[in-house]
Design a protein around this nucleic acid. Structure first.
Lengths: 352, 352
DNA sequence: TTGAAAGCGCTAACAA
DNA sequence: TTGTTAGCGCTTTCAA
C-alpha cells in the first residue's frame, strides 16, 4: 500500500487470538448458517469481540473461497440518460438491503467498449449481471450467460436466447398513443423511430406499423424516419427529413421523449407551433419533462419498477437452486395526457 | 455455484500446464512490469496461450495478495439528481481507461446509510473513494482517511481535515450573479439558500451575505430563507415563506436550479410572472434546464470537469509515493444569461 | 461442539 | 532467466 499510516484490518485470526478459539470457529460463529453448530456462549463471545474490535469481513478472501462476491454488475448505455438513474435506484432498492454492491459501467452503446467492460466485471467475480445495454443479438452476452453467470436484461431483450428480460409494454404504449391521436382526429401520423439495433426501437416501430394498419391509416415510406440514437439532435435531424419529404403529416409519434423535444425544436424553427400546427408525442416520461413547454403528452414507463423487477429476478437466479423465471416480464405503461396534442388543423376547421 | 453448466475459469495454472513453464513465470509474463526479466520468447508464448485460452485474471486473488483491487468507491447522495451522472461520467473518463471499476452507492444524505455503504466499500477492498456526499464534518470519513484509504471529496469539503477536495467556485458564482442582478437594477434581492449542513449551501449563503454587504444592499432577516433539501418542493416552501414575509423583494437568487424552479412555480401560482414581476436565478445549470420556460439564468458548474479532476487526484494519491495534492482544487464557474432576469418593475418604470 | 488442514488464484521474496 | 515456496483471509471437509 502506498499510503502511510495504513492500519491493517482486523481479521478472523485477530478475533481468534483474542477469544482463544480457532479461526474456523470464529468463521462459524459469524456466519448465521453455521453458528447453529456452536455453543451459544462461544457464538456470543466471538460476536461481541468482533464487534468490539471493529471486524469487517474481507470479501475478497471469502469470494475467492466461495465464488460469491456479493457484488453485481450493472451494464447501462449512459447514466447521463435520464431514464437510467431511476432504473439504477430501482435495482439498488432490492440489492442493497440484501448486502449486494453494484459495479456500474457505461457502454455508450459501443460494442467494443461493452465487451471490455463485461470482462472487467467478470474479472471482479460479480455474482450476476443486469444488462440494460444489450443489443438485439449480442454473442458476448449469450456466451456470458452460457458460462453460467446469472443475468437479466432490462428494456431490451436478446433474440434467440433464454436470458430473462424485463421490459415495458412498448407495443401497448404505441398502440394507446396512436389510438389517442386517431381519436383527436389525426389521420396522417408520422413516426420518429428509435435505433433499429435497440430492441425498444424495433418493438415500437413494429407496433406503430401494426397499429397504423389496424386503424387503416395511410403510411407512405416517408412516414417513418429512423434515428441513430435516442437524442435531441437525432430528433432534429429526423424531423427535418420528415418535413422535407413533403408528406402532409399532422402529428408525430416519437419513440422517445428526447426525440420529441428535438422534433419540436425543429418545428418551431420552421415556424410551426406544437400542438396548434403539429401534434407531437413522446415516450418514457422522463424526469422534468412536465416542466418543459409545451408539456409533452407521452407514455409513462415505470423505470424504478423495471429496475426493481430485474433485480428481484437476478436475486432469484443467483440464490435459488432451480428458479422458474419467465422469459419475459412485461410491465404496464400509461398514457400521460399533457399539452402537445391537439386536433389537426384540417379537422378542427372541419369541426367549425 | 448455483448455475448449472458453470464452466470454471482459466487460471494461471492452466496456462502454465499448457506452456510447460511455472505459474510464477506465467504471472511475470503477463505483467508488463515484470516481463522484462523474461525471455521475449517465453513472454510471447505465454501471452499467446493466455490469449488463445481466453484467460481473464482473477482480481479477487490478485487483490487478496496485493491489496489492490483496481476498484474504487463512488459515494454520492442520489444518482437521480441530475448533476451526479455528469460527475460520474467525468470520473469514469479517467478511471476506466486505467482499468479501474467503480462501485457506486447512494446515501440519500442519510448518515446511517452512508456509514453502512462505506463499510460495504471497505469490505470489498476498494483502492480509493471519491466522496460526493460528505457532510461538513463527518467522523466516519475522517476515520477512513486516517485508516489510509485514498480519498477525495467532491463539491463538499470536510472541515478541519486534509482530505483533498474538488469544488466549484461557489463564492465567485454567487458574487457574479448578485452583481448581475444589481446591474439590472435590483436592490432588494432575496436568497433561497441550500441546506446548512451541505458545504455548498453554506458557502453560497455566506458568499451571498458578503457580496450583498459589499454592494450595500438592504438585507433584512426575511431576505434569506433556508431550504432543507435541494429539491423543487423545498423551493416552493421557501418561496412561500418569502412571499408571506411581506418584504418587497424584486429578485430571488437561488442556491440551486431546482429551488429556482420550485420558486417560479409558486410565483406563477400567486399570479406573479418571472421575470416581469420577479427575477429568479439558479445555480448549477443542470441538463435540460435550457428547455424549461422561462429559461433560467444560472451559474454553470463544470460537473464533468469536477468529476474528472477528482478522479485524477485520486489516481495520484493511489499511485504516487509522495503526492503533493492541493487541499482544495477550485474550478471556475460561468454566468449563463437566459430569460429569467429582467429589470425590476420600479426601475423599469423609472426608466420610462 | 471445536480444531486442524487444505486450498481458492495470485504475487513476490528468495533460491538456483 | 526461471522455479520454489509461502501466504494474502477466508471457508469447509475431515477428524477428534
Amino acid at each position: 500500500m502506498v499510503q502511510t499510516g495504513m492500519k491493517k484490518a482486523i481479521t478472523l485470526r485477530d478475533i481468534a487470538r483474542e477469544t482463544g478459539v480457532h479461526v474456523s470457529t470464529v468463521s462459524r460463529a459469524l456466519d448465521a448458517r453455521t453458528q447453529a453448530s456452536l455453543t451459544a456462549e462461544v457464538v456470543e463471545r466471538v460476536r461481541a469481540t468482533a464487534e468490539r474490535m471493529g471486524y469487517r469481513p474481507n470479501r475478497l478472501a471469502s469470494g475467492l473461497r466461495t465464488n460469491r462476491t456479493m457484488t453485481v454488475g450493472l451494464v447501462i448505455p449512459d447514466i447521463t440518460n435520464a431514464v437510467f438513474p431511476l432504473i439504477v435506484r430501482g435495482i439498488e432498492s432490492v440489492l442493497e438491503p440484501l448486502g449486494y454492491a453494484s459495479i456500474i459501467v457505461n457502454t455508450d452503446n459501443l460494442s467494443e467498449r461493452e465487451h471490455r467492460l463485461v470482462d472487467l466485471l467478470q474479472e471482479r467475480g460479480v455474482d450476476g449481471v443486469i444488462h440494460a445495454a444489450a443489443t438485439r443479438n449480442d454473442p458476448k452476452i449469450v456466451e456470458m450467460a452460457a458460462r453460467g453467470i446469472p443475468m437479466v436484461t432490462v428494456n431490451r431483450s436478446i433474440e434467440h436466447s433464454d436470458i430473462p428480460a424485463v421490459v415495458s409494454d412498448d407495443a401497448r404504449g404505441v398502440q394507446m398513443m396512436l389510438q389517442y391521436l386517431y381519436d383527436q382526429g389525426h389521420r396522417r401520423i408520422a413516426h420518429l423511430s428509435g435505433p433499429a439495433q435497440s430492441s425498444t426501437g424495433q418493438a415500437r416501430r413494429q407496433a406503430f406499423v401494426e397499429a397504423a394498419q389496424a386503424l387503416g391509416l395511410e403510411l407512405p415510406q416517408a412516414a417513418i424516419v429512423e434515428s441513430a440514437r435516442y437524442e435531441e439532435d437525432e430528433g432534429r435531424r429526423a424531423a427535418l427529413r420528415l418535413l422535407d419529404s413533403g408528406w402532409p403529416f399532422t402529428a408525430i409519434l416519437c419513440a422517445n421523449d428526447r426525440l420529441a423535444l428535438g422534433a419540436i425544436a425543429v418545428l418551431r424553427a420552421r415556424g410551426l407551433d406544437c400542438p396548434a400546427d403539429v401534434s407531437v408525442t413522446g415516450f418514457n416520461d422522463m424526469p422534468l419533462l412536465d416542466l418543459i413547454l409545451p408539456r409533452l403528452t407521452t407514455i409513462r414507463i415505470q423505470q424504478f419498477e423495471v429496475g426493481k423487477a430485474s433485480a428481484e429476478i437476478l436475486v432469484r437466479i443467483m440464490t435459488e437452486t432451480t428458479p422458474r423465471i419467465p422469459r419475459e416480464t412485461v410491465l404496464p405503461v400509461f398514457l400521460v395526457e399533457r399539452d402537445s396534442v391537439a386536433p389537426p388543423r384540417a379537422a378542427s376547421r372541419r369541426a367549425c
